[in-house]
Design a protein around this nucleic acid. Sequence first.
DNA 1: GAGATATTACGACGTCCGTCGAACGATCCG
DNA 2: CGGATCGTTCGACGGACGTCGTAATATCTC
Lengths: 111, 111
Amino acid sequence: MGALQVLSAEQEADPDAGPDGLSLALVLGALSDPIRLAIVSELADGSERSCGSFDLGIAKSTRSHHFNVLVEAGILTRRVEGRIRKLKLRRDALEARFPGLLDAVLGGSRR
Amino acid sequence: MGALQVLSAEQEADPDAGPDGLSLALVLGALSDPIRLAIVSELADGSERSCGSFDLGIAKSTRSHHFNVLVEAGILTRRVEGRIRKLKLRRDALEARFPGLLDAVLGGSRR
DNA sequence: GAGATATTACGACGTCCGTCGAACGATCCG
DNA sequence: CGGATCGTTCGACGGACGTCGTAATATCTC
């Protein structure tokens, strides 16, 4: 599991990653945390939101950490806009690589 | 493992688990390991196999550990038959709780 | 430039996870 | 019974993970 992060942001050095750097184990691992699941749920409608607009009950730095995990797994994109980072779900890339996965996860999360 | 086992084998004490004890985060966490993904893949056809019939390149005890994780997440059942434990995928329960998830995961794993 | 705002980076700390070897328990077979 | 087979349990170890507070960076505003 352990992988030293040496690569450039969105590109992962994962053994079984596809052409676009998406690895199933990495994606599932990123989604296996309730907080990150909540983040993804809130972005499910395709909206683009700033990091600070998420009201999870955790410290700023912890939030940032979870965003990092999601971006590095290829689940989210982060776009800089002034002093704000806009986060967005990579629904198309995810759907292309793992058809049906995102919908299944999102469907199962709001029960 | 972490939790003290006070419940009856298949019942987990997970905060956001459904009636049948299946929790999305727990299931995704269990599937986020390449070895466990391989185990589930091999059971995808609904067959019932003994623990020893899996040729993963790891120690017996490690194998046993991974089977435990999968059973405790509600993904597999373990049935004792003589000195052999037969493992089987809980496809129906999984499908009922997280429709489409298993197929999406299995589809994405054999690329 | 000074100050405020948004977010990341850096250590640090405790816990959980994957791995192993060795020991144990249960079962089958001679 | 004695040995072989199948699998689990136990204790240990190193590394990864989630969490935090604080410091740093970048941007906007005055």
